[in-house]
Design a protein around this nucleic acid. Structure first.
Lengths: 213, 213
DNA sequence: CGCGAATCTTGACGAGTGTCAAGAGTTTTC
DNA sequence: GAAAACTCTTGACACTCGTCAAGATTCGCG
């Protein structure tokens, strides 16, 4: 463990007191995410991760205690940037149908652009079913994803002048399920997997609303 | 590869011509499934699999060419026995509500009794997103699970004297999603995860039906 | 029984793993 | 500009993995 220089005087708020550390950690994480998205949790070795970066394989233990700590940091880091993916949709939608369309498009878009990150997430969540030490992080991320979906559904109900007909966990489970199927289909090269996802979302959303009050 | 004794005369249909091979493969698979369900795909080594069985670690290559061939055989073998889990529900249900109740109970039951097998399945499906060679088997199994759900939903609609309102892939995706969440909650020791699943299914099913004709 | 085929065990191999310690290189501080 | 702190590289360690070959054991049939 590094000697943790307790900086008594945080006098220079500008740069590089000891959060240079954090910058490096982020840089390492960003590069590690590329390899992890390509190979998955089990097959991505620290050497391979380091090879696809500007660092050497030993540096990992300078910034992280453990391979597991690195991976958890990576996924937390990624989730942080993507939990607000649909905030724009929620903010800009002008009608229920508009929101549905934007939401569907965004779902398709993220599969095309970030399929490796998504499969990594599903990989990690599955691993957490076996590895106790992953569960806390996975549970937290899952919760924040549920909240994200809840914001979309709530806004949708608001625009439709009614209430959601189902609790947030169910809505999240449903969308996550169809999303996962679409991702699988996309990775399998099945034509129409993405168009199907769009249609499914359009067909599904109206069913989530209580009868108009 | 074993010399494949071409038995010209299949005269003894009773036992042990060369399908003793198949019996052994099944026994090995059954024992391997226990270890795989405990450790997952990546961490279950052939030695560990063999240790938890009556065989030694070398025998695997007598019955399977490959570790991958063993795993795929195992999961195919398991799926075969569980794709008809809800056939009883479909056959015995006397009313829409009765079917929903039985279905929910069965879902909860299988989580309690076969959680390791389910997490193994999700593990393998996630791995197939990275490992090309797993995709064919995973796609087939996923399809047969979708068919299984379709039978339940169709029978439900039949009993309610109407039609399903959503295509089979969507229904499967939805139920798979909420089931996966319930499994995660159960493995995390979250109280009420199973009761929630039951309630969610009861609340969800009626929404899958078209308005009564 | 006895012989040959089928079945299984044992032990080894090379490759790959996470981890860490020793030291080289770099930056900061006085 | 020297000393101290920080950063990073290199190389080795102990270990596990899948695979396979050589031999022991068991089985089935003449």
């Amino acid at each position: 463990m590094p000697p943790m220089t307790q900086v008594a005087a945080p006098k220079s708020p500008r740069r590089t007191p000891a959060d240079k550390h954090d910058e490096r950690r982020k840089a390492l994480a960003e590069s590690a995410l590329r390899t992890l998205g390509e190979l998955g949790y089990a097959r991505a070795s620290l050497r391979e991760i380091a090879n696809n970066s500007e660092f050497s394989h030993g540096v990992v233990h300078y910034y992280f205690n453990d391979k597991l700590e690195l991976i958890v940091y990576c996924v937390r880091y990624y989730k942080q940037t993507c939990v607000h993916r649909y905030d724009g949709v929620v903010a800009e939608a002008t009608s229920p149908d508009d929101l549905v369309t934007r939401f569907g498009d965004k779902l398709v878009e993220t599969i095309v652009e970030e399929a490796p990150m998504h499969r990594l997430w599903y990989d990690l969540r599955s691993q957490s079913m076996f590895e106790e030490s992953l569960r806390e992080a996975v549970t937290q991320i899952d919760q924040s994803l549920e909240d994200m979906i809840a914001r979309v559904v709530n806004r949708y109900a608001e625009l439709a002048d009614t209430e959601p007909a189902i609790p947030a966990p169910v809505a999240y489970g449903m969308f996550d399920g169809v999303f996962q199927q679409a991702l699988l289909g996309y990775l399998n090269g099945r034509d129409g997997a993405l168009d199907d996802l769009r249609d499914q979302v359009v067909g599904l959303m109206p069913m989530l609303l209580a009868p108009k009050r």
